[in-house]
Amino acid sequence: MDAIFLQILNGLDKGAAYALIALGLTLVFGTLGIVNFAHGALFMLGAFCAVSLNKLMTLSTKVEDTSVTLFKAYKEQPYLEIWFPDMGHTLIEYSVPLSILLAIPVMILVGIAMERGLIKHFYKRAHADQILVTFGLAIVIQEVIKAYFGANPIPQTAPEILSGSADIGSWLGLGQNVVYPWWRIVYLLFSGVVIFGVFAFLQFTTYGMVVRAGMRDRETVGLLGINIERRFTLVFALATIVAGLAGVMYTPVLPPDYHMGMDFLVLSFVVVVVGGMGSLGGAVLAGFLLGIIQSFASMTEVKAVLPGIDQIVIYLVAVVILLVLPRGLMGRAGVMDD
């Protein structure tokens, strides 16, 4: 019982990351009809927003270390701590959550530039062309990041107060060994808020209503005199923000490196397809579902029966679902039926 509960928890945080990436991916697909292979690179860009902010805040200079009295010693101290002693220290500690403030404008700019500069010209082209051009773009983004930040993962730390683990087991009257890192709880809550926000935006605002109408029938919406192009640009920017935020908050869980986007992209595509192309609810559901399934498959008891299952289970589920339910879990008829 404890073990099962723990595995569900473990699956949730990975599932949350999958769900967030897949949400943006399927949003772009459902509205713009674009298969965006560069979406994983956007996730990675978000993660590197956190890295850059941290680097910026910890820009440091040499100062004399007064704690050493025997000889003259020097230590590196960030400017921020020199200028505002206590405040600066706290700021640096909270650099990951603060990166959200940096990531949002950066991702909006990236998203708009990408849509206006490149994606716009590919609305009428074949899906294969879209895949290929965004794949090329993903390589470019990846290599630029590699040139500036190097190839090694750059670990980021969560604020100290959140760095321990929560003793969930004792709260719920389960065993003592059911513990779960605080930061992952934060990540879960955060992704819940983001997912809810996106759904609320699409469901309860007039703007979102128009976008949903555009997803159904873009031509008619255009004929009604609505500038659907501009709305779609914003939807694309929204999707990049979601991917970027997912990346920012994931940095304490997984040290970002330049190819993390590609690793997640393949899985997220599987998630989108399992959920059903163009279905937002399906993407979220499938994200969490596959995360949990993956975490169950990596239990030692399961691996003893089916060796290697943890490596392939996601793909296996994807293959079975695609062959049995061609439209995925919640796909609508008429979307990508060719």
Partner: peptide
């Protein structure tokens, strides 16, 4: 399957 579903299936395999 055809189209992108085929691509994803081959990728998965």
């Amino acid at each position: 399957r055809t189209g992108i579903y085929f691509s994803i299936l081959t990728l998965a395999f």
